[in-house]
């Protein structure tokens, strides 16, 4: 990854920490989807997430599900372990890698949800896969999730 902008953070792999990670990734999304002069680009003072751009909506929807997966499956809801997040902001592309040190996950065993049967679970990976251009998982430890989304050609870069 050789991004124009690199953001790195380490935080506990606990669900209570997810909102903080979401806020940072939401701002990174805006750096890709709505580039502004640097002085105006990052505004963490907003009380809300203000997700209106389709790029931002899709990426954050996927990110929330992957963070949930780490907290619930890798760390078994204990929060006993870190998540290392690396955000690469490229022109027209956002790359986010999440590294955890918990129990490996077998992505190949996750079935597609039967949406016509109104499932009450098993939708998270489907959401992430569908919302991203690329999603990869390498079991470890450390386990590595790689999430990539690009601005669609019809969208302003």
């Amino acid at each position: 990854m050789s991004p124009r902008t690199a953001i790195r953070m380490v935080l506990p792999g606990a669900l209570v920490c997810r909102p903080l990670a979401v806020r940072v990734v939401a701002e990174a999304c805006r750096l890709v989807s709505s580039p502004q002069p640097h002085a105006e680009a990052v505004d963490l003072s907003s009380a809300g997430y203000d997700l209106r751009n389709r790029f931002d909506i899709d990426f954050i929807s996927a990110f929330m599900e992957i963070f949930n997966n780490i907290a619930v499956h890798a760390y078994r809801r204990t929060g006993n372990g870190d998540v290392e997040i690396a955000i690469g902001v490229h022109p027209g592309e956002l790359v986010v890698e999440l590294k955890d040190f918990g129990v490996p996950f077998d992505l190949s065993t996750v079935p597609e949800p039967a949406l016509d049967e109104l499932p009450e679970g098993g939708m998270g990976i489907h959401i992430a896969r569908t919302m991203l251009d690329e999603m990869a998982y390498e079991p470890g430890p450390p386990n590595l999730w790689r999430m990539i989304k690009r601005i669609a050609p019809s969208q302003p870069a």
């Binding site: 997430y49 997700l51 929330m64 939708m123 998270g124």
Partner: peptide, 8 residues
């Protein structure tokens, strides 16, 4: 914001 658990 909603995630899959909220949808459930």
């Amino acid at each position: 914001l909603i995630d899959s658990s909220g949808v459930a």
